[in-house]
Design a protein around this nucleic acid. Structure first.
Length: 482
RNA sequence: GGCCCCGUCGUCUAGCGGCCUAGGACGCUGCCCUCUCAAGGCAGUAGCGCCGGUUCAAAUCCGGUCGGGGCUACCA
């Protein structure tokens, strides 16, 4: 039987990094076994679900290149893959479960349940609702059921226990005394997550359910439901949760959790995938940098870690830098150009695009975030209007500054061969004549042309800038030096 | 409170009874390279939560303990 897995987020929030990792693991697992990766929308929470969130989820999935073979928007043999459009079907299943004695109309109130749970807490017994508060069937009237009061609950067989082998955690046993007679249909006759999700897993032929550990204790419910539907339960794999730097479950207060925020900050999807994969999975052989195809080849679901992982932005940042450095200059220009144009508020001319291409390998080397490119490269396209304050006071107020600037102006003006090598030689000549160290003599020039003591390599920068522009900037800065 | 999961450097992890004086990566520190910043090279820093047991031998197996996390909704 071929592998069929699904990622089934509920559109009640943006796609966050933890969910993205779950999606990734499902994707890798499916592709490793040549199976099918399905994207479904578990949107039974009509109160909190929004199209905005749904759109974000699809957008981020596509950005990460986690292509799904079946599901939302791409279609498949099971309709729209949105639970909100299958309510009739879930009702039929629920009614069938009642008919077969696996479920019942429940009239217990929230208040009664609270008392029940509180008493259980006080006596130290199980707080799982066992159906003991329901009225005698003979006392249930038609009007009670039609009055919108009744929910439908699944009847947990008691005594009993559910056992299953979790792919990452091994043998699991849950005593039914600890499992609630849970609601499968709300009083407004809409299905809950447990029902809809399980019905879909059965209908769609899901073979492996790979999801977060927060659903581990709900698994007995899903297995019992599946069996009540006369189906074979899937194999389950529960992934540990992602934590914030303080060891608490990753949430907004730890900073960005929305994947879109990482995209906007300038992270590459390749880096994101690589980093996320390492959170809870080991490719073996002490390797850290793993391409998507290598991950697919190695990910068979066996090397998944059981312990929770802290989402470490520092390492992600490092990895992003690695991926940026590894990309071709052409790719880099393609990514950098729109960023620069947005910053400048205009299109780049053909000559400017050429300059960017020459500059690319230099900027690429010192970029960890795509968003940093603009600050590094802007000076090539527009002369500094202000100078970085600390840069200026550090080098332009030194006694060497005017000497260096004047020397450079003279030497460069006389230079006809505008190559990096010639510029290098000319400027070093200036250093020698004036007995200046490279540090003392070159930094003023750097500040003059780039506005800062930090910039791409000087000689290359000057070469790209051109003679006229370079001399103009040196003159402008020189006029401000006393 | 009940049930469940987890516990190796600060962080992600390798480790499946002797190969471990515990390996790799990020970070951090120092040195080298160097026109700045990066990148790169080299070196260093730091860990098996604790207690007991099994064994000739335990990070690895068992029990307990402590700590962290999850679930305990007509949310998913």
């Amino acid at each position: 039987m071929s592998v069929r897995v699904r990622f089934a987020p509920s559109p009640t929030g943006y796609l966050h990094v933890g969910a993205a990792r779950t999606a990734l693991f499902n994707y890798l697992f499916a592709n490793h076994f040549g199976g099918t990766f399905i994207l479904r929308s578990d949107d039974t929470d009509t109160e909190r679900s929004t199209v905005e969130f749904q759109t974000d989820i699809l957008e981020q999935m596509r950005w990460l290149n986690l292509d799904w073979d079946e599901g939302i928007e791409v279609g498949g043999p099971h309709g729209t893959y949105r639970q909100s459009e299958r309510y009739d079907h879930y009702r039929d299943v629920a009614l069938q479960l009642i008919e077969e004695g696996h479920a019942y109309y429940s009239l217990v109130t929230a208040d009664q349940l609270n008392v029940f749970k509180q008493r259980a807490r006080n006596t130290g017994s199980s707080p799982a609702y066992d159906g003991s508060l329901e009225p005698e069937p003979s006392q249930i009237s038609r009007s009670m059921l039609d009055g919108g009061q009744a929910t439908i609950r699944f009847r947990i067989p008691r005594p009993g226990a559910t056992m299953f082998t979790d792919l990452v955690r091994g043998e699991m046993v849950f005593d039914h005394a600890q499992v609630d007679d849970f609601v499968i249909m709300r009083s407004d006759f809409t299905p809950t997550y447990h029902l809809a999700s399980t019905v879909d897993d059965v209908d769609y032929g899901i073979t492996h359910v790979i999801r977060g550990e927060d659903l581990l204790s709900s698994t007995p419910k899903h297995i019992l439901l599946t069996k009540a539907m006369h189906a074979e339960p899937a194999t389950y794999a529960h992934l540990s949760l992602l934590m914030g730097p303080d060891g608490k479950k990753l949430s907004k207060r730890h900073g960005d959790t929305a994947l879109s925020a990482y995209r906007e900050a300038g992270f590459l999807p390749e880096a994101m995938n690589n980093y996320l994969a390492l959170l809870g999975w080991s490719p073996g052989d002490d390797e850290t940098l793993v391409s998507m195809s290598e991950m697919i080849e190695r990910f068979d679901g066996t090397a998944i870690s059981r312990n929770p992982a802290v989402f470490d932005q520092e390492k992600l940042l490092w990895m992003n830098g690695v991926y940026i450095r590894e990309m071709s200059d052409t790719e880099f220009v393609e990514l950098a150009r729109p960023l620069l144009e947005a910053d400048l508020g205009r299109s780049l001319t053909g000559d400017e695009v050429s300059s960017l291409a020459v500059l690319s390998p230099l900027v690429k080397e010192r970029t960890k975030l795509l968003s940093e490119i603009v600050d590094q490269a802007r000076f090539v396209f527009v002369a500094p209007t202000t100078y970085d304050e600390s840069s200026w006071s550090k080098v332009m107020e030194s006694p060497e500054a005017p000497i260096a600037l004047d020397g450079a102006a003279t030497a460069l003006k006389a230079l006809d061969d505008w190559t990096t090598e010639a510029i290098d030689a000319a400027l070093r000549g200036v250093l020698e004549v004036n007995d200046l160290s490279a540090r003392k003599g070159l930094q003023p020039i750097r500040v003059a042309i780039s506005g800062s003591t930090v910039s791409p390599p000087l000689f290359e920068s000057i070469q790209i800038l051109g003679k006229d522009e370079t001399l103009a900037r040196i003159a402008t800065a020189r006029a401000l030096v006393t």
